[in-house]
């Protein structure tokens, strides 16, 4: 492994840009992501920045079961994220549809039908600690030696 690759790995593990998209959640998971920003949990001390612009992001946090309006919008949004990229499903909704996955519902879970999901954080909603520790443990693994893996 070249020394540049090592440097890249180190930098990447300390600088993760996050974008979140709500595809039909109840807001519970969204405010738990927001709570991660608060000085109590302080997500930025680990080098994670919340951007909300898919073109700048590395990690896409997805909350919510899949509502019909997103059918033609989530895929383009996912394609706009530059490589290396990874999607994380937050909460029960993108995994299973939570309590909304019943007959007569409008949502269409799971989200993994539409874009590849790398990790799932179960819980309704998950605690901020669970969200932070998952992103921290996942991101270095995904982004490590990205250039070498690509070849």
């Amino acid at each position: 492994m070249s020394i540049i690759q090592k440097l890249k790995n180190t930098i990447r593990s300390r600088s993760i840009h996050v974008c979140y998209v709500n595809v039909g959640s109840c807001n519970g998971c969204d405010i738990e992501i927001l709570a991660c920003l608060s000085p109590r949990y302080d997500i930025e001390q680990y080098g994670i920045y919340v951007h909300n612009n898919p073109r700048e992001a590395d990690v896409l946090l997805i909350t919510g079961a899949f509502s019909p309006q997103w059918e033609d919008k989530l895929k383009p949004l996912w394609e706009k994220i530059p490589h290396p990229k990874v999607a994380v499903a937050i909460g029960n909704c993108p995994i299973s549809g939570c309590v909304f996955n019943r007959p007569e519902t409008l949502v269409d879970p799971p989200v993994s039908k539409h874009i590849p999901i790398a990790a799932e954080i179960p819980g309704c909603p998950p605690r901020p600690t669970e969200i932070i520790s998952t992103i921290l443990s996942l991101a270095p693994l995904i982004f490590k030696d990205y250039e070498e893996k690509k070849q």
Binding site: N92, I95, S96, C98, V99, E120, P122, G123, C124
Partner: peptide, 12 residues
């Protein structure tokens, strides 16, 4: 017999 919880479905 045992109850089994499915993570991803359980809302705690």
């Amino acid at each position: 017999w045992r109850p089994e919880i499915t993570k991803g479905h359980c809302i705690r």
